[in-house]
């Protein structure tokens, strides 16, 4: 009943929820980002428990090591870390809480009352299989999505450069 795995799951769940609460309630952005980093780290742990080891690595490297760093850079560049966030009115907070809670209830109801069938295809779940599946161009493969994502990343790369460029008048100003 209560084995080490279940305890770990509980631990990870509590830490992630608490960190998430910290993310949304902290007024200072840097604290918020740190809590986000905590959530992402814990999620990586969850992936291990869910037999997706490769994703753990991806999560830490890309999500934490790329995205969160980028957010921190943006915070530095826009000076958001120096000023505190403007507080929203209490009734807005109440409304947001109510709506989120309502969403939670509806989703919970949906999840709990939906019987989900399990399917066992009996394939391997290793990194090699992941790679093969990603580049498989048969009907069950995802090579098209892979290519599209590559294009998306290219577009984002170019787009970001174009958008973040200093314009003429900004240079002269």
């Amino acid at each position: 009943m209560y084995n080490i795995e279940t305890l770990f799951i509980y631990l990870l769940s509590i830490v992630s929820v608490l960190s998430a609460v910290l993310v949304v309630t902290q007024r200072r952005i840097i604290r918020s980002v740190s809590a986000l980093m905590m959530v992402l780290l814990v999620t990586a742990g969850m992936y291990v428990i869910l037999n997706a080891e490769f994703l753990t690595g991806v999560q830490v490297l890309v999500y934490i090591g790329g995205i969160v760093i980028l957010i921190i850079f943006a915070i530095m560049l826009t000076g958001a870390g120096k000023t505190n966030d403007d507080e929203v009115d209490t009734h807005k907070k109440l409304l947001a809480f109510a709506v989120s809670f309502l969403f939670l209830l509806c989703s919970t109801y949906a999840i709990v009352n939906t019987p989900i069938k399990t399917v066992d295809t009996g394939a391997n779940s290793s990194v090699r299989a992941l790679g093969l599946k990603l580049l498989d161009y048969s009907g069950t493969g995802h090579v098209l999505a892979f290519e599209v994502i590559s294009l998306l990343l290219l577009a984002v790369l170019i787009g970001a450069i174009v958008v973040a460029r200093k314009t003429e008048e900004a240079k002269n100003a």
Partner: peptide, 25 residues
């Protein structure tokens, strides 16, 4: 639960980066 917490954060934050952080969540 994590999603709804992120949702709450989306409605509550006034900084644009704060909203983006909630979206990441």
């Amino acid at each position: 639960v994590l999603f709804s917490i992120g949702l709450y954060g989306f409605f509550t934050r006034t900084n644009a980066i704060g909203i983006l952080i909630s979206v990441e969540l």
